[in-house]
Amino acid sequence: MATPLRVLVHGGGIGGLTFAVALARSGHAVEVVELRDELDALGVGIIQPSNALHVMREIGVLDACVAAGFPWEVLTICDPVGNTLAKIPQPQLDGAPHANGIPRPELARILGEAAVAAGVPIRFGTTIEELSDDGSGVDVTLSDGSSSRWDLVVAFDGIGSPLRNRLYGDRFTPEYTGFANWRVTVPRLPEVQGVVISVGRTSTKALLTPITDELMYLAAVTAEEPDFRPDPARAHEQLKERLAAFGGPVAQSLTNVTGPEGIVYSRISQVTVEEPWHVGRVVLAGDAAHASTPNLAQGAAMAVEDALVLVRTLDSEDDVASALAAWEARRRPRAMFVQNLSRALLKEETGSPTTPEEDELLKIGMPGAAHVLVKPY
């Protein structure tokens, strides 16, 4: 667009900060509001596949991500006792590294520093209280009492998106899959040079991901009742009970889990906004629009792709309405491919029944998906 836009970003997570940095570097005025008091990223670590790293390169933080993390090239599949079944080289997108594991707090720090360097204000402890879209702009009142007018409001506010609820009510709420994710940081074993996945004989999967030279995280996907929550005093014992059938590096890593401290438990849910991802000049992106199960490790990658493509589309189209329509037409098929295949893989790995459509997707599989997703986004 010929005139720079004023854009308010609701949510200072990975997608929101990536969008803000790219937007500011493109000459637009942007501000982020974040309900948390600081960028204290929840969780332990995250996988950055090559397409996500390509976005990091585009916003100027690739080197910082690689320096803070652990770059790797080969995915290893093991049986429950630790015997290697397959080693799968990961493809690259336009010269970006194959993949990188990084602690979530480090990624939050890198993106936060990039936002500050780009001149992006971040208001912490703040959220949107009221908004009114008159077709030519959005009047917003924040929880700190301030009011201002924006050309666009973009919600990167996660799977529980308050703005999604404001736009669509309860029509698109998170759907619990019946499975949950346990994660904990442990010392990296020397043999863990990339992600190692072990699938058990029951509906349990274990995953080891290096995130620095010294650290990796252990993740376990287990079937859990909707109302289950780990006992704060014995979460480590409950995790070990669920992984009792595993040997090899999974069992070895569990010897370092001696207490409940640091164990992060989250239910695996997904969201599909089946209506347009924007209402007027208020837009949903990332998990707010299309949260997936973690089986392809593409959730954050889809959010940062959303971010960069939205900036590029805003720059290339003549008006906001045309840009939002073009952006969604480009992004929805890719995001739905990730969501649908991720859910199919979750079912396959845990022995759950699959649909004929999911069986077709499973013919692509995880290796095939990696090659699909390193094509330009």
Rank of each mutant, 00 (worst) to 15 (best):
T350S: 11
F337C: 10
F337L: 07
A300M: 12
E305C: 09
P353E: 02
A301R: 09
S292E: 03
R343T: 04
E305D: 11
P333I: 07
M302H: 02
V338R: 07
M336P: 08
A307P: 01
V338F: 09
D318K: 11
L314G: 03
I364Y: 08
R330E: 15
S342L: 06
S322M: 02
E349M: 13
D315V: 02
W327Y: 02
L346Y: 00
V311A: 13
S352V: 04
G365W: 00
A325P: 00
A307M: 01
E317V: 04
E360G: 13
A323D: 11
V320H: 07
W327K: 03
S352A: 13
S316A: 14
S316K: 08
V311I: 12
V338E: 12
G351V: 05
A321D: 11
V320F: 05
N295Q: 12
L345Y: 11
S316D: 09
I364Q: 08
P356E: 03
L296H: 08
A297H: 12
A344V: 00
K347N: 02
E360T: 15
M336T: 13
Q339G: 14
V309P: 07
T313E: 05
K347G: 01
F337S: 06
A326Y: 01
F337H: 02
A301T: 04
A325G: 04
G365I: 01
N340G: 11
V309I: 10
L314T: 04
A303H: 04
V309L: 14
D306M: 02
M336S: 14
S322W: 07
E305A: 08
A301M: 06
V304K: 06
T354M: 08
N295H: 15
A303M: 01
T354F: 10
L362R: 02
N340K: 12
G351H: 03
E360W: 11
S316W: 06
R330N: 13
A321W: 03
L361E: 09
K363G: 10
M366A: 15
L296W: 04
G351R: 02
T293G: 04
S352K: 13
E358F: 03
T293W: 11
R343F: 15
P353F: 01
A329V: 07
A303F: 00
E360M: 13
V309E: 12
L310K: 06
T350R: 12
L296E: 01
M366K: 12
F337D: 04
L346D: 07
R334C: 07
E358W: 05
